[in-house]
């Protein structure tokens, strides 16, 4: 299946849930609503023509208006790639866990919770793992985070 075939297939089978954002470049990008996350992810993994069984990466982004969680998928048998993102509100970001579909999402989601403060529903073990145990200074990867001993690189004098 080539990239154009993939675009048409997604539009015909998942067109109501996955909205195409940017399908022209190297990896086609779609947007997904948070309430459809688990069922669409399961369908993408189990579909006979797609078989997206390899979850490469889950990344969280803090644009200052909202939070985004981006899922990058690949297929080991069909040579296909797909990305989709889920947009959450800035005040109370919450998302479902996809750990039943791809167990490899476990640590990616824990990191999202720890560094950004995004709450993951149905995750078995949301505990601290990258930061020191006695960390009490908030969620460091957010854009508006600051701390007294955080030294920023000065802007170069032009």
């Amino acid at each position: 299946m080539t990239r154009d075939d993939l675009k048409d297939y997604i539009a015909s089978h998942f067109g109501d849930k996955l909205t195409a954002l940017d399908t022209g470049r190297y990896d086609p990008l779609y947007e997904l609503k948070a309430e459809h996350l688990v069922e669409v992810a399961r369908a993408l993994r189990d579909d006979e023509n797609l078989k997206f069984d390899f979850l490469c990466n889950i990344g969280a982004v803090d644009t200052t208006e909202h939070f985004e969680a981006v899922y990058n998928l690949a297929s080991t048998t069909k040579r296909l790639r797909l990305d989709f993102k889920v947009i959450m509100s800035h005040d109370n970001p919450e998302i479902d866990s996809v750990i039943d579909i791809w167990p490899g999402a476990n640590w990616h989601e824990r990191e999202m919770w720890e560094l950004f403060g995004i709450n993951i529903r149905n995750h078995p073990n949301l505990t601290r793992f990258l930061l020191p145990d006695e960390w009490d200074q908030g969620f460091p990867m957010r854009k508006d985070w600051d701390a007294p001993d955080f030294i920023r690189m000065p802007e170069p004098e032009t």
């Binding site: 069984d53 390899f54 979850l55 490469c56 080991t76 791809w102 167990p103 490899g104």
Partner: peptide
């Protein structure tokens, strides 16, 4: 197990 955990 490897594929489901993202091992490569």
């Amino acid at each position: 197990l490897g594929i489901s955990y993202g091992v490569s």
